[in-house]
Amino acid sequence: MIDIEQHTSDDYVIEIANLKKTFNGKPVLKDISLKIKRSENVVVLGKSGIGKSVLIKCIVGLIQPDSGSLKVFGKDVLDMNSRDLNDLRTKVGFIFQGNALYDSMTVRENLEFPLRRNKIIKDTKLINELILDVLDNVGLLEAIDKMPSELSGGMKKRIGLARTLILKPEIILYDEPTTGLDPLTSREISNLIVKIQKKYNATSIIITHDLNCAKITSNRMLILHDGIFKAKGSFDELKNSDNKWVRSFFEMA
């Protein structure tokens, strides 16, 4: 088990240093260093296919980086055995770009799946209460017995979020949470991310190229380009940056 309390004296829950990842000889992450404090929402902005998703997949051990150090709750992810990695993964939620709902299961089964598999809670009554609670939090109580194929894009995002929230994660990694949604639903999802940050005191990394989402959700922003963070700061700082290239990101929108 990962002792979270013992490692949080400096309040950094994620510490990444000199992270590198190459795919087929092409460097995607060249030198990534980043520290994130508890309850902070960090938005990583960048063009599509630049390696943003690779970064957060490294954090949960879905992709192995070539070199560098990657600590979550003070423990090096790259040195973890499969049991430690599983323990970590129950504390780190991951929202996939395509939602990744289990399409052969109903919404209820999707939500109880991580609880039952990890045997965190065995009591069916308690599991039901938790399901209703997270569905209430994402505003989709009526969808409990529906199949994922019966849900709209925005609803799927919410259920994906609910499935992550049911494990009460301390870190949530969002991979393009508003991609493919209309502006109104995008705004709703962005507001939901902020609501979750406050309610669950969760630390989040939000990968996006949606500036409205970035504006609503970010405490801090980073722009990833060419394998490194080219710019850092708040939304307003970056928007009014002296650097023309950085400003161009905001002007395009």
Partner: peptide, 14 residues
């Protein structure tokens, strides 16, 4: 393809 296997992995299920 729809990342459901990855989703299983990150929810602590092998």
């Amino acid at each position: 393809v729809t990342e459901q296997i990855d989703a299983m992995d990150v929810s602590g299920t092998n």
